[in-house]
Design a protein around this nucleic acid. Structure first.
Lengths: 219, 219
DNA sequence: AAATGAACCTTACAGTGTAAGTTGTCAAGC
DNA sequence: GCTTGACAACTTACACTGTAAGGTTCATTT
């Protein structure tokens, strides 16, 4: 008898969508580094090479995953005030990161050149422009909030709060002795504080942007 | 005759420092993904396993590289005004990233739990505290500028400006047709604009922080 | 000179991405 | 029903990875 764990599956049943779904599962279960075509195949109940019939390489597959996530985003209702739209768009992107924490580092490191990603990028730029910023400021402010957003996702999914790294660890007692202010700050570095901290920084940036926008009429 | 490329090298000449130096070179030449213990050994003129005598694993080696970079940072002169010290500290960290662009993604993804990194972290927290912020705000604002800093390093070293990703690319003509605002913004996304854009965002954050600090006496 | 122990090398293994070639399966036309 | 063709899936193979285990060489101390 076949003691293989793989489930039997008829041929001709693989699709890009199925593969992507399984890839998300394997990545979240095994971690981004633990992901492999063979493990993905096992999850799908097929052989590794079958996947190459649908994706020419692992890199293509990973980029398809980014497209899948970014493509699921839609621009906030144009009827809402500028600041609210920006807040929603930022929270939306942050959400697709936190929903796939193991994949998030790839998401934020990925160069967004696919049509899907460019469309999202274009939408956000348009949001700045609709808010009243010129092309240059729109571009630079997009970068500014983008930097903040990417850094936040990175930290929230794989940063300090996720525990010590694999190799060198400092015990809590030692930490409290050597770096008491870090130990104290740790209270605010945990996952429970992510939302509040994220909003604090985001609101600081949006405040400053609104100030730049309506300098004349807000004072 | 031995056609091997390896340089002959006397025994007993390997050291952690030498290995780290060579690792930085290999990583920048081959990329982070292209790095391997065997390539590093070739660079050093030794065998792969010899390296394990100085570092128990590749992960330990990579973390040592982070420590090396972060350990090279020193806190800005305490005599300077708060804002200037913060600016310098941020620019210092950004610099170690841009000096090792291929390694930067690891640097910003790394969980900073080593004593060296905790010392730096503690220094920055202390900077906030010295500026007049309480423990909670110090912690949260540290995260805020940290997010921004990490995102900036990530983008500047491996983001949009580094050209299309390996697989899906959109031609410049197509980009101009489909997403004219992105094409226009690209002008401000290049490496030549990194400094200005970084300072714009950093100054926005610092402005807002100073506002929070000296609300009473600055108005 | 002998011994000791660190520093380095050799070999080996399980796992990786994927190129190349082969087989199974199902639908269309006879 | 049978044949044919196309293509999805599998098999095999290769070059490469990190690193465990064990063997060798050399510098230093005695």
């Amino acid at each position: 008898m076949d003691s293989s764990i793989k489930k039997k599956r008829p041929r001709g049943r693989l699709s890009r969508e199925m593969i992507e779904d399984a890839a998300f599962e394997v990545i979240e279960r095994e971690g981004l580094a633990g992901f492999s075509m063979r493990k993905l195949a096992a999850e799908l109940g097929c052989e590794a090479m079958s996947i190459y019939h649908h994706f020419p390489s692992q890199a293509h597959l990973h980029e398809a995953l980014v497209d899948r996530l970014v493509g699921s985003l839609e621009m906030p209702d144009a009827g809402l005030p500028w600041r609210q739209r920006m807040r929603i768009a930022m929270h939306d992107f942050r959400r697709i990161g936190s929903e796939h924490p193991a994949f998030a580092p790839f998401l934020v490191t990925y160069r967004m050149n696919s049509p899907t990603c460019l469309a999202w990028l274009s939408g956000i730029l348009g949001l700045f422009e609709a808010g009243g910023f010129g092309p240059e400021l729109s571009a630079r402010l997009f970068r500014t909030v983008g930097y903040y957003l990417m850094g936040a996702i990175l930290d929230e999914t794989s940063g300090y709060a996720k525990g010590p790294s694999a190799v060198t660890a400092v015990s809590d007692e030692q930490l409290a002795l050597d770096f008491p202010n870090v130990a104290a700050a740790g209270r605010y570095f945990g996952a429970a504080e992510f939302d509040r901290t994220f909003d604090l920084g985001l609101d600081m940036l949006l405040d400053e942007m609104e100030r730049a926008l309506g300098g004349a009429n807000s004072r």
